[in-house]
Design a binder for these strands. Sequence first.
DNA 1: AGGGATTCCGAAATCGTTTTCGCTTCTTTC
DNA 2: GAAAGAAGCGAAAACGATTTCGGAATCCCT
Lengths: 339, 339
Amino acid sequence: MKPTTLKDIAHELNISVATVSKALKGYSDVSSSTKKAVLKMAKKMNYIPNTVAVNLRTQQTKTLGVIIPAIVHHFFSEVMDGIIKEAKKHGYLVITLQSNENYQLEKKQLILLQQKRVDGILISLSNDTPNFDHINAILQKKIPIVMFDKIAKLVECSKVVIDDKLAAYNAVSYLIEKGYKRIAHFRGSLNPQISIDRFLGYRKALVDHGIPFDPKLVYICDNNDDFNDGYNNAKKMLEEHNDIDAVFTITDVVAVGILKYLKENDIKIPEDIALFGFSNWFMSSVITPSLSSVTQPGFKMGKKSTKILIEEIKCINKGIPYSFQTCVLPTSLVIRNSS
Amino acid sequence: MKPTTLKDIAHELNISVATVSKALKGYSDVSSSTKKAVLKMAKKMNYIPNTVAVNLRTQQTKTLGVIIPAIVHHFFSEVMDGIIKEAKKHGYLVITLQSNENYQLEKKQLILLQQKRVDGILISLSNDTPNFDHINAILQKKIPIVMFDKIAKLVECSKVVIDDKLAAYNAVSYLIEKGYKRIAHFRGSLNPQISIDRFLGYRKALVDHGIPFDPKLVYICDNNDDFNDGYNNAKKMLEEHNDIDAVFTITDVVAVGILKYLKENDIKIPEDIALFGFSNWFMSSVITPSLSSVTQPGFKMGKKSTKILIEEIKCINKGIPYSFQTCVLPTSLVIRNSS
DNA sequence: AGGGATTCCGAAATCGTTTTCGCTTCTTTC
DNA sequence: GAAAGAAGCGAAAACGATTTCGGAATCCCT
């Protein structure tokens, strides 16, 4: 009924627990005959080591904690895939927590992870995280944290990101070079760095190409419902302006919302209004018209973040110092029929 | 540097570890004055209980293990959302593992979860899982397992599913009633129950409506690449038959693959060929033409599975017997422009 | 004042490992 | 044949909590 323990094996073999443990772990001070006997008995009794006990003894859990805003999101599920696969490669398990874009919850989840004594934490910040004391508090306890995607520039830890500003700059520059002149921007919430950076890239592209920046052309999508944010703001935009010829959006789903509204109102894409999304969701390649977008390497981001985190954990275990790194993953433009 | 322990608090207050523990846990045999002092000191020293030690002592981890084929999948990410949220409600954390549709890996992951001493396991089987000994082995150790979506009917444990056969039956019946007569089926791998059931529903609908079942109209999509499976088999189908007027697919992405091929070849949907998908991905509502589909309540499935699992864990802890339940979640047809 | 009840606290066992250190026993060597 | 070295094993401490049980101190009551 109860799982087999070392003690059970030791008792069965009339030897000590210490010897059993050492035999199983390949210590050299165990004769090959007893080692063989232990191995055999362990298999016979279907021994499965109790990780909880091991964790307590070794003071590490071989477990990583992950906090993301939401898992039902193509990008984040790709990141999770990368995290889980890379962690597995190094013998780590991962506990997944969601912040639901909620600061209070994010704080609670961090405490939970500390209780669980995870060896390290991966986090992508929630939209309404106003300060980073909760992150710094953990860092200062020497628990390594790697931030990805939605990061805080001011926090001193390793980070894995894309160059959001540059990517946005390139996308908008492409639109401009294609001849579009009145380009609106559907941005995200005001807080997150990615939202700020993509906006800055948008603005810089305009200015650099001699197009005046008009704040009235910037719409904020911050209801955590990208599709309807896009749809509703598209309506609003068309009521307020009749000269928009392109829209650059914070993410593909917003663009799809716009697309829906435009099609319903017989506005041609890209002839009347062009669209350019961000993140390159699978969906974007199959809708009509297909949506131009910026690739955002979620899987790689997950893998790289995890790799860095595990390296840092290793350093801490060995007591050797390490320095924080910021890894910027490359992006590219995928040009499709919407622009 | 090291996290505060009960011993640290006890030492600081010149009382015993036992008393500190009891004070923190609200035992009645602690005077209110010392309780107050302990609480204060715990806060001052920023005490965070070590779950690993608690787990070892209490012999449970308050952790659930989840094994799914892949997390990068809209349906499974919804399930995960449901699982994580329901688990959190009951104070459980979840460890996510992927089987990559691989039987060997699935087995290994199960062992990992046992090592971790999770209190219960949620699993959706991989496509190429040929037998269920590995599942039964765990069940017989009295570790509760709840299967969802891709289940094994023969395994005796609780299950949460939809009625795949009925849902498929309804979808195909709808097509027939709409006047479609030569209806092909793009099915999944041969192994999984859901794939079998949806096929059976398809066949029964034909037969019940007096349409002969033609095995030549069944195409197998089993390359773990739904989109291209749909695309390539669509090509094949059109080469082999010229009278198909509708296709019912195992999942939406397959249908989207077909859709792509049909559009490339100027075959009108639904005039020439109608399409009916399964799972109702978000994508299906925004592509052109929008895709009819069967709703598959992923979030609910995750929640319900977790709820049942935690109930079973409770029963085990209390030593009261329980019986396995099979919960069949309702589905419905979403009729859109593709049929 | 004496007895019983109550209140409060702590020693110690326990969960299942890992790892150090010391103790035998055996082998080798001159 | 004695000293030195090696080989093999086990006792015990430790990780950080929980919980039982018993003891000491205080209280109340006649």
